[in-house]
């Protein structure tokens, strides 16, 4: 698994995809940060910035995973991986952790923004840390969705669009929580990515939400492994 992780991580920076992802991530994040916090000149709007960043992730993160498995299938290089003494879950996890590393690096680099904020205003450190932790897990979930769609097709673009659509649907579910029917509201609150994010906006590190994000990511990664196993048996 480590060999695949290493190769994949390197591949992100041999091709332009890693740089483009990082550049776009930082540019979009910088823009949102400027609009939501600096221009408003109030530290409390940092939560709005983080929420908008989740929507940006919905488009940016699938671009990172769209080629992960689809390209290997297209060029048949997956035959090397599948006929080597490595398990399918080892292959998937190696690639997943490589994408997660690139994302985490960009997220951490992006945190420099808060240094700027701290210099000119009052920053609630706990609020920012808990938001960053939450964003990390939401990003991990989106990458898992991206991996799943990448395993379904040879076409990277189809993989990206499929993941983006799915993520947006998962985000849009939260709009249903305004419905006044109590049981619908409780179900939506339970499954919605954004509802689960709410505690973090108050600086609360909600462990049940973290477990929720990790579990959904694990389900998508499990499905990805199943797609490969199914293809082997098909």
């Amino acid at each position: 698994m480590f060999a695949i992780y290493k190769r994949e991580l390197k591949a992100y920076f041999i091709s332009p995809i890693g740089y483009l992802f990082a550049a776009n991530f930082l540019a979009i994040s910088g823009l949102l940060f400027s609009i939501c916090t600096l221009q408003k000149q109030e530290a409390s709007s940092v939560s709005t910035y983080f929420e908008y960043l989740i929507y940006a992730f919905a488009i940016l993160l699938p671009l990172l995973t769209m080629k992960s498995l689809s390209e290997e299938r297209k060029t048949k290089s997956e035959q090397l991986l599948m006929t080597s003494p490595v398990s399918i879950s080892g292959i998937i996890m190696g690639k997943y952790f490589a994408a997660l590393t690139v994302f985490t690096a960009a997220l951490l680099f992006n945190s420099l923004n808060f240094g700027l904020l701290a210099k000119y205003g009052n920053v609630n450190g706990m609020l920012i840390v808990s938001n960053l932790i939450c964003l990390f897990f939401i990003g991990a979930l989106f990458l898992a969705i991206g991996m799943f769609f990448s395993s379904l097709t040879e076409d990277a673009l189809v993989s990206a669009i499929g993941s983006i659509d799915t993520i947006f649907i998962m985000l849009a579910v939260s709009f249903l929580s305004d419905i006044s029917i109590p049981w619908v509201k409780s179900v939506v609150d339970f499954i919605s990515i954004l509802s689960r994010y709410e505690p973090f906006t108050y600086g609360i590190l909600d462990i049940t939400s973290v477990i929720y994000y990790v579990s959904i990511a694990a389900v998508f990664l499990f499905f990805t492994v199943r797609v490969y196993e199914r293809r082997r048996w098909a």
Partner: peptide
């Protein structure tokens, strides 16, 4: 050791 019909290579490496 397996050489498939299309060599499983990574062109960027």
């Amino acid at each position: 050791g397996f050489l498939p019909e299309m060599p499983p290579l990574y062109p960027e490496m």
